[in-house]
Design a protein around this nucleic acid. Structure first.
Length: 113
DNA sequence: GGTTTGACCCGTT
DNA sequence: CAACGGGCCAAAC
């Protein structure tokens, strides 16, 4: 029985290194469903807090962060990322060229379909 | 079972 | 450049 989709999302998210970020679409692609970016977003949104996943390291394809309400305040997610060394453009978007994580198939092979 | 819901993505306007 | 619309998929109801 293959792990449920959400579980596979969590498995990959848990391996995102400090100081790097991943996009929803990138995650979906890595899991074999290039068009499931939306579902990935929902999965992360409903991730159980006790798993301590670095969900602040998941961003949109344009480098934009999640709405403020998600992390309970304006600038919260950005502060966490900056603490890890992630840099931003003046318009508030992440510098993806610098910090986007290259998902190595080796590091997620256990969740690849 | 069908319907609804999302922290999306991309092309088009 | 910003806004809009359609497509997409998995879980919850």
């Amino acid at each position: 029985m293959p792990a449920r989709f959400f579980e596979r999302v969590y498995a990959v998210v848990s391996q995102i290194p400090r100081g790097t970020v991943v996009t929803y679409g990138q995650l979906a692609l890595a899991l074999g469903n290039p068009r499931a970016a939306r579902t990935v977003g929902w999965a992360i949104h409903s991730a159980p807090p006790e798993r301590n996943l670095p969900c602040h390291r998941v961003v949109s394809a344009s480098g934009a962060l999640a709405p403020d309400r998600v992390f309970g305040g304006s600038g919260v997610q950005r502060a966490m990322l900056e603490q890890e060394g992630v840099t931003f453009f003046e318009d508030g978007r992440i510098d993806l060229d610098k910090h986007l994580w290259d998902i190595a198939p080796r590091s997620i092979r256990h969740v690849i379909p």
